[in-house]
């Protein structure tokens, strides 16, 4: 699972109000080369929660995302865009867990796939 997916998932246990973002408990992280496409980054940026991506990237080993992103950085700051690209698309959570920030419920990630199925008493 890439951090782009993580950035949009939230805990959907019934009654949970602050289920976003999942904390990441990584056991195995893989890196994968993805084609660098700044145009895609500019288009996807408005749909992202930046603080969640920044925090997740730190846990996953990309500590170079800035606190604030400006329009000019998105347009022509090559160094920033490379770090953004790497965090968003090249770091793969292969084994570990996503942890609900409110309840601590752990959703296991195995072979890169998070299991977000709920138990009967959570629906």
């Amino acid at each position: 699972m890439k951090l782009l997916t993580h950035n949009m998932l939230s805990c959907h246990i019934k009654g949970v109000k602050n289920g976003y973002p999942f904390k990441i408990d990584p056991v195995k992280i893989e890196e994968m080369d993805a084609d660098y496409d700044p145009d895609f980054l500019r288009h996807i940026y408005p749909r992202l929660e930046w603080p969640a991506l920044r925090e997740a990237a730190q846990v996953m080993g990309e500590p170079n995302l800035p606190e604030e992103v400006t329009e000019s950085m998105l347009q022509n700051d090559e160094e920033f865009l490379r770090h953004f690209h790497h965090a968003l698309l090249e770091l793969i959570l292969e084994e570990g867990a996503l942890v609900c920030p409110e309840t601590g419920r752990r959703f296991p990630v195995h072979k890169g796939v998070p299991n977000l199925l709920l138990h009967e008493d959570e629906v």
Partner: peptide, 8 residues
């Protein structure tokens, strides 16, 4: 490689 999987 552009597809992530989620069980749900």
């Amino acid at each position: 490689a552009c597809v992530d999987l989620v069980q749900g």
